[in-house]
Design a protein around this nucleic acid. Structure first.
Lengths: 342, 342
DNA sequence: GGCCACATTGTTAGCGCTCACATTTCGTGG
DNA sequence: CCACGAAATGTGAGCGCTAACAATGTGGCC
């Protein structure tokens, strides 16, 4: 690597040093066939000697393809979105794509569209949106742009209406998760299950609530009114204070682990033991939940799989495939000690 | 906005529609002076009508400036790094920069350099590295590149040796945090403070441990051997099992909240009450720590400030300032109920 | 009224790459 | 031993933008 270069070496510098044309260098770089082995080697050597790196901007300009994937992600550090983002970035990076992130502080349509615009300005090849909220995700779907778009953790086009067929979705089957948790509680002998829900404009929250209600209905149990939370431990604590004072409550499905922690806290303060007096099931399987008091039975989502799926869908779309492909990842139950048989 | 464009509108399309030259369009776009108000308006209208967006790749090619900031961040979802990353991305975005992320799965030199290379290939204008580990951060410092680099949460050049003056650092004063926690425990009347540490190759961990030891030494207390952890609740649990069995242990400073949760868990299992029997202080102030059992006294870091500082340092460097600027953010103590007076 | 300074606009040449095509080289069979 | 097609390489244009410079227009002042 040279030390005192006035300006970064270009393809022409490499070509000159290797005694070939710039086009041959380009061919070597892009792994084209029809380059003699000896030439290829000479070019490689020159590249190394000069410390040459291809200029992505120039390539993007020439090809009209940036090989960059854009992500819209919430500013929050909620476990789900943060995990999804990390997994997506890693997967995309491993696939040889650059990843450009645009954070949104709120899910208001305007904010989300601004973020998408920023990405579009960069001519990203495709966009993944971690925007798990009703209105916003839908606002995305009809962006007037040919850029492939996948919604992560977004609206499953369950109803085969496929009206907004524009975008693909990869998501965890939240409903199934809710079912899993509720069924587990019922299996343990509880007559019904109470529920602390997440914000209902989140697909995750809505799905979990739906799954919970569906199982109760199928089994002919009473469906108690859900206690709304906002994902935070503090809101879980408030819900716990409420539910803990009701003697008939002996099984609670909480829509995420953070709120479950709050519930545990409130129950503890009220002197109601978990799991002896009340069984609790959470959702997310955050790494800490194994050490809540007591260790929390919860539902685990495979973010890795979601991310892989999302990148896969995007790449496929870039290859030309037009039909949007939805993918669903199934969550699993992680049993610990916050549930006891009745 | 047109619907059926064969190809995206370029500056020339705008120019034609507005009846000016492409250069005038460029001037309007870049806010140059010396454009008649009427002309500016005409151009703006044409831009809107065509739905034109400037092509960043072309601009980057022409100027040699991508106006993109690169970030190297760990794949993990540890609270500190994740918060830092989110804050940095938002701040950078607000400053009008695109943000490109490169995740590393480990902090081995090779992995980190690969990530940086990926960023350099994109010709990012500057790089922020969230690589809070000894070896790796140092490996970065002497990268042979004119690209401005700031290490977030990296090595403070405390000793004014300034040998590796190449890179700037913005970080939380971890030592001060360790002091705060330890002093608080001492003030509560404990004769000494035990310590569950993070991995000592992390600057954060090392700094917290140093601060803890320094206060004990200053006050002439015995300095017990630290129990090493790895940031996870599970490792905290193991440490807690150890310390909880020692009757003389009645005050523990744990290097992060996740491990503190594990300690709390172990202590609970061993029947040692917090804070009645043992006082515990954590570090991070994760949102959940307010609902640990009991609510955890901990040390809060202002990630927002760190991120703002990092972006600031980078921009300054881009403006030409050569001298690397280090910045330190001071943490604060958050009192809750895991500490009791003796 | 003519000239000059300044405000405004236009023209040209790249930035570093890829694409489409032109050209050369080489091995082979008649 | 030469023609011929495939393999290997080279050439020129252009992607959409900015920077430097050139060319207009405009008003004020003597």
């Amino acid at each position: 690597m040279d030390v005192t270069t006035g300006r970064e070496p270009s393809m022409f510098d490499v070509a000159k040093l290797a005694g070939v044309s710039h086009q041959t260098v380009s061919r070597v770089l892009n792994g084209h066939t029809n380059v003699k082995e000896a030439t290829r080697l000479r070019v490689r050597t020159a590249i190394a000697e000069l410390g040459y790196r291809p200029n992505r901007a120039a390539r993007a300009l020439a090809t009209g393809q940036s090989r960059t994937l854009g992500v819209v992600a919430p500013r929050s550090t909620l476990y789900g979105p943060a995990s999804l983002l990390a997994a997506f970035e890693e997967t995309a990076g491993a696939a040889g794509f650059a990843v450009s992130v645009s954070r949104v502080r709120t899910f208001e349509t305007a904010a989300v569209q601004l973020a998408v615009t920023a990405l579009l300005d960069q001519r990203v090849s495709a966009i993944a949106a971690i925007v798990p909220v009703r209105g916003a995700a839908e606002a995305l779907a009809d962006l007037p742009s040919g850029t492939p778009l996948v919604t992560i953790d977004g609206p499953l086009s369950t109803a085969a209406t496929t009206a907004t067929a524009a975008a693909s979705t990869v998501a965890v089957d939240q409903r199934q998760g809710g079912r899993l948790a509720t069924r587990h509680l019922l299996d343990a002998g509880h007559s019904t299950v109470w529920h602390v829900s997440g914000p209902q404009d989140w697909f995750d929250a809505a799905g979990r609530t739906e799954g919970w209600a569906a199982v109760l209905r199928e089994e002919g149990r009473t469906v108690p009114p859900p206690v709304p939370g906002d994902w935070t431990a503090a809101s879980g604590y408030r819900a716990g204070q409420l539910l803990g004072r009701m003697p008939e409550v002996d099984a609670i499905f909480v829509a995420n682990d953070a709120m479950a922690l709050g519930v545990l806290h409130a129950l503890h303060e009220l002197g109601r033991r978990v799991p002896e007096d009340v069984s609790v099931v959470g959702f997310d399987d955050v790494p800490e939940s194994a050490h809540y008091i007591p260790p929390l039975t919860t539902v685990r989502q495979d973010f890795e799989a979601v991310a892989t799926g999302a990148v896969g869908v995007l790449l496929e779309q870039l290859e030309g495939s037009d039909r949007p492909a939805d993918q669903v990842v199934t969550p699993t139950l992680v049993e610990r000690s916050s549930v006891a048989r009745r």
